[in-house]
Write a protein that binds this DNA or RNA. Structure first.
Length: 257
DNA sequence: ATGACGTTGCTTCAACGA
């Protein structure tokens, strides 16, 4: 089985690239984030022509997540119980069972700055997510993948000094991610296609991608049974190249069951 | 140098992103 996660930064703007990438990468399941479209506007017909069924959760202009699967989509859950809002709940998590595995696509709140209320929202969102995932883990095989908006270690940003005092690297954010790992979720480390740093995000501005000044903030966490079956995981930096890319690259995981 | 770039929408600039 091959699955992937990708923050597409608008599924409408990225549709031609998404369809091309689906054809060439041929994943069985895809976790999408920042679709920026309501459920009615999601291009389900277009991905359907490639054999994918869709479970979308969207709200329009901001956020939005989805699952694409060509191995079935059952028991779809939009959001999760007790999910915090800002102030209202946002479209940041969707999960479904695909071929016996529960996949959850997550778009963790950004946090903006450490002194912003959005930062406390981010930490609370991750805290409640942890409790939800504990229950999901008890129920069976689980993959939680998406844009976590946290760089778990200093090596996950191109220059730690630049990020001092910023979100994405603070100890409370890193502790919130570590708490997910402590549940028994295993970080599936993706290799870089080029260079030593498997970054998944590069700012559009100032040629950051071409200088490889990026961040590793998109992650795949898997239950231990699945993590043991992983045969390869890679950041598809090819998808970040060229005209009209997302600012995130997909992470593609292969596992042999 | 606190900028740069890209997407969205009750657009003609502001909000947001990380």
């Amino acid at each position: 089985m091959r699955f992937a996660t990708w923050n597409v930064n608008s599924v409408k703007a990225r549709l031609p690239r998404l369809l091309d990438w689906l054809e060439h990468t041929a994943p069985d399941v895809v976790c999408l984030q920042e679709t920026k479209v309501g459920e009615d506007g999601f291009p389900a017909d277009e991905v359907g022509e490639l054999g994918y069924r869709t479970a979308a959760y969207g709200q329009g202009r901001w956020n939005g997540v989805a699952l694409l699967s060509r191995v079935g989509v059952e028991d779809v859950r939009r959001g999760f119980p007790g999910e915090p809002g800002f102030p209202d709940p946002e479209a940041r998590a969707v999960s479904a069972v695909c071929d016996g595995i529960r996949f959850m696509s997550v778009y963790v709140p950004n946090g903006r700055t450490p002194d912003d209320p959005h930062y406390l929202y981010k930490l609370e969102w991750l805290r409640v997510l942890r409790d939800v995932l504990a229950a999901d883990l008890a129920a069976g095989p689980l993959v939680v993948a998406g844009d976590f908006n946290v760089a778990p270690a200093d090596a996950d940003v191109w220059d730690p000094a630049v990020f001092a005092g910023s979100t994405h690297v603070t100890p409370p954010e890193r502790a919130a991610i570590a708490a997910l790992r402590d549940l028994g979720l295993t970080d599936v480390p993706a290799r870089a296609m080029k260079g030593d740093h498997p970054f998944t995000y590069w700012d559009y501005r100032a040629g950051m991608f071409h200088q490889n000044k990026g961040m590793r903030i998109d992650h795949v966490y898997a239950s231990a049974d699945l993590a043991a079956m992983v045969t390869d995981a890679v950041v598809d930096r090819e998808a970040r190249k060229g005209k009209g890319p997302s600012d995130h690259a997909p992470v593609v995981v292969d596992l042999k069951r």
